[in-house]
């Protein structure tokens, strides 16, 4: 088996108070895939994500970046954080500058780029998220969805190989979700590896290539999305429900697999129309 881009082995993290958040967890992040870390609220997903770019140091366990064990010294950390970009759930935790373009320029300047190169990176990142028109706006006048996109642009401007997003759709309305996923899909097509945490099985089912089912500080299983989400026993243990589309497919006797995933509501409508026409 190929070496994954980022591999986590036997990760354990105990909070200073003695509460264990992660208890011996394994995770593989494969190049060019979209991985959902799926788990209920408060299960420790955010803590796990903070380990993926060295913001938290594990109490035990190992993280490998392209096969090399990571180190926590200053220079190694900088390189690691450039390669693995993390976007927090709450954009106000990440945006500090008064205007959008200033905020996005922060990362590129920390990479030591010249002003001209940084300016180019800012433009590129804002364009990728289709928010170039917000460049000169004051950060505090943005809507939540806009802030979210600016926060992503701020990380994207550092050109990371892996983009890690904590609950990317939380707090967005359906239009905002569509818009955001569209932008992320484009990044993915351009070659980015995406990792996102979510408690939303429907989102994971509709959008992820792979799912890691996370519960109570461990990854119960990780694998291809359809295989994971049709495993009732696994979902029950993680206190998750089966995605609606998958349940409907089962009830209608449709074969669902990674090859014919039956993932969109459009596919469902086509199927239902066919069935109704067949009866009538």
């Amino acid at each position: 088996m190929n070496e994954p881009l980022l591999a986590v082995r036997d990760l354990e993290y105990v909070y200073p108070g003695g509460v264990a958040a992660l208890r011996g967890l394994d995770l593989r992040i494969e190049q060019g895939r979209k991985l959902a870390i799926l788990g209920s609220n408060g299960s420790g997903k955010t803590t796990l994500l903070l380990h993926l770019n060295g913001l938290c140091k594990p109490t035990r366990g190992e993280i490998r970046l392209e096969g090399q064990p990571v180190s926590y010294d200053h220079r190694a950390l900088n390189d690691w954080r450039r390669r693995v970009g993390l976007i927090l759930q709450e954009p106000d935790d990440q945006l500090f500058a008064a205007t959008v373009s200033q905020d996005v320029s922060f990362g590129p300047l920390n990479l030591g780029l010249s002003n001209a190169d940084a300016r180019e990176r800012v433009r590129e990142a804002l364009e990728a998220l289709r928010i170039l028109h917000l460049a000169d706006r004051a950060t505090h006048t943005l809507s939540f969805g806009q802030k979210k996109r600016v926060a992503i642009a701020g990380v994207l401007a550092m050109r990371p190989e892996i983009l890690v997003l904590d609950e990317p759709t939380a707090g967005l309305d359906s239009h905002g979700v569509t818009h955001l996923l569209g932008a992320l899909e484009q990044l993915h097509e351009a070659g980015a590896t995406l990792v996102f945490s979510t408690h939303d099985v429907e989102l994971a089912y509709a959008w992820a290539d792979d799912v890691a089912v996370f519960h109570d500080g461990v990854v119960l299983r990780q694998g291809e999305t359809v295989a994971m989400l049709s495993d009732r026993e696994l979902l029950r243990r993680a206190r998750l429900r089966c995605p609606l589309l998958l349940e409907v497919a089962e009830a209608l006797g449709v074969e669902v697999s990674a090859a014919s995933p039956f993932r969109s509501r459009e596919a469902l409508l086509v199927l239902l129309q066919e069935r109704c026409a067949g009866q009538g």
């Binding site: 900088n78 927090l88 935790d93 205007t99 373009s101 200033q102 922060f106 990362g107 300047l109 920390n110």
Partner: peptide, 24 residues
């Protein structure tokens, strides 16, 4: 709490103690 989390968010973008941004 906000200050702590903001520092995390900034560290994820290579913050090392200096808040350098482009001036318009």
């Amino acid at each position: 709490e906000q200050a702590r989390r903001l520092e995390m968010g900034l560290m994820a973008r290579g913050y090392t103690g200096e808040l350098r941004v482009l001036t318009p």
